[in-house]
Design a binder for these strands. Structure first.
Lengths: 158, 158
DNA sequence: TTTACTGCAAACTATTTGCAACTCA
DNA sequence: TGAGTTGCAAATAGTTTGCAGTAAA
C-alpha cells in the first residue's frame, strides 16, 4: 500500500523526500481523516523543522496524483484521506466526524453519468450527511422526525 | 418552485427581504452554478447597494434550509445550485464546468450507508469528475488512456 | 552536479464579524 | 414597535507564494 504509492511517486519522477514519505506513511496508517493542522502537529516530533507550507504542498501533490482525496466536514479546514481502496464517506453534521463506507460499489454511477453527460469520467466523490450514533444519543434523536426540533445547522432537515 | 421556497422561509419565521427574494429568484432561474462573486455582479443593477456580506449570509441561510447546495469545481470560490429536485453533478477537471445529472436515483445509497454506519442519514452529495465534451475536443482526448499524456492537474488519472 | 524541494515569512483572498442604521412583520 | 437584517469596513484564517538554502538522484 505504502510501497505502491511510493512507486507511483517514482513513476512520475517525483522525488521521494523524507517529508513526503513520512506524511504518506502517516496517511496510510491513520484513518482519522486528519486536517492539515492535525498532520502538522502529529508529525512535529518526527520532523521538528517541518513547515506547514510543505504539508500543504505535499497534500496537494498527493491529491493531484489521486493517492489522497480531500474532504470537507463543515469545520474550517480541509481534511484528507488516503484513497487506497475506493470508498465514500458519511459526515456527521453535528460533530464533524467522518466515517468510511465501502459499500455499495458506485462505479456504475460513473458509467451512467458518462452516458448522460458526455463527459469522459475519471472518478467520483460521494458524501452522505447525517447524525452519527454518538450525536443521536447525545441529542436524544431516534428518528428522522426528531430532527425538526433541533436548532442545529443541519442541511436537508427542512 | 420559487413560491414554495419563499413559503419555506416564512415557515421558519425568516423575513422575506428584497435581497433574499432577488437572490432566490436568481438561483431558481439560473442553472449556471454561480459563485458568490457572479451572483453579486449579476445583481448589482437590480440591487445597487447590495453587500457582498449579504450574499454570503443569504446563501448560507439557504444552504442551512436545504434550498440550495454548495459545490466546488476546483477554482477558488464556492459555487451554488438551487436544489429543487434531487440531482448530482459532473465537474470538468479542466475548465470547471458543472453539469446537472438527474439519473440514477441515489437514495438507495443513503439507506445502505445508514445500515452500515449507524448514522441517521439526512442527505447526500455526489460529484463525478471528468472531462467535458468541449475539453475532450479541445485537448484531443477520445479515450481514458489519452489522459496519460496530459499535464493537467487531473486527479485519478494516475 | 543540478534541479527539485523545503522552510520561513509575507502575501493573498475567500469568508466572517462587529456594529450602527434600517425595515419587515 | 422591535427583533431580525443589511451594509460597510475591518478582522480572520486557510492557503499560496517568493526566495534562499538544501538535498535527492
Amino acid at each position: 500500500m505504502l510501497t505502491q504509492s511510493i512507486q507511483q511517486l517514482k513513476n512520475h519522477k517525483i522525488r521521494v523526500t523524507p517529508q513526503r514519505q513520512i506524511i504518506l506513511t502517516y496517511l496510510v496508517t491513520h484513518h482519522n481523516h486528519p486536517s492539515v493542522e492535525t498532520i502538522y502537529q502529529d508529525l512535529e516530533t518526527q520532523l521538528p523543522n517541518l513547515s506547514l507550507a510543505t504539508v500543504y504542498n505535499t497534500l496537494k501533490l498527493f491529491v493531484d496524483l489521486g493517492i489522497v482525496i480531500e474532504l470537507q466536514n463543515g469545520d474550517a479546514g480541509t481534511h484528507y484521506d488516503f484513497f487506497g481502496r475506493p470508498h465514500y464517506h458519511v459526515v456527521c453534521e453535528n460533530c464533524g466526524k467522518i466515517t468510511d463506507v465501502f459499500e455499495p460499489d458506485l462505479s456504475s454511477v460513473e458509467v451512467k453519468a458518462a452516458e448522460i453527460s458526455g463527459y469522459l469520467v475519471t472518478g467520483h466523490n460521494m458524501e452522505v450527511y447525517g447524525l452519527c450514533p454518538d450525536c443521536q444519543k447525545a441529542l436524544g434523536v431516534t428518528q428522522p422526525s426528531d430532527l425538526k426540533r433541533l436548532n442545529l445547522n443541519l442541511s436537508h432537515s427542512e
